[in-house]
Write a protein that binds this DNA or RNA. Structure first.
Lengths: 65, 65
DNA sequence: TCTTTATGTCAATTATATATTGCATTTGCA
DNA sequence: TGCAAATGCAATATATAATTGACATAAAGA
């Protein structure tokens, strides 16, 4: 499933995928894959993304049943 | 840094590392490494662990600055 | 003591997250 | 319309998460 929350949070920060990728130290493709879903990033990467966007893990990566 | 929260949550459920490992479909060693820290699990594994222990991502894996 | 149970830890291997390159496609703006 | 920025997407290469097996250690009970 797509990660809409992350895309919205990124756009609220006026960042392109490339900007966020640079900010967290990965490639643009990796960011694209995460937003597109069916991808499984590592915890450290998730945390770094959250901090770059001013969100928490639950905000961006937790889905209630 | 050690993940004390996870160890405490696991013991509250009266599970050994091996029980939790079986419940989430990984090996005992993997669980031990995550609790010991200096390890970087994938997001899906973190989510599966949270659900097995009745916690959220923020409960177990989020540290406030 | 001696066992048993739970955990720590190491080495080698396998599976997969991420990098890199390149090109296609979409979207917004002139 | 058109261009250009932003994103999608595929193939291959590399780094590292996760497996497997084996042995060490610490604690509790007989």
């Amino acid at each position: 499933m797509k990660n809409k929350k992350m895309k919205i949070a990124r756009m609220e920060c006026d960042m392109k995928q490339e900007d966020l990728a640079k900010a967290v130290g990965v490639t643009r493709q990796t960011m694209g894959l995460i937003e597109a879903g069916n991808y499984n990033p590592t915890l450290n990467l998730c945390i770094t993304i959250c901090k770059a966007l001013g969100k928490t893990l639950n905000d961006l990566f937790w889905e209630e049943i």
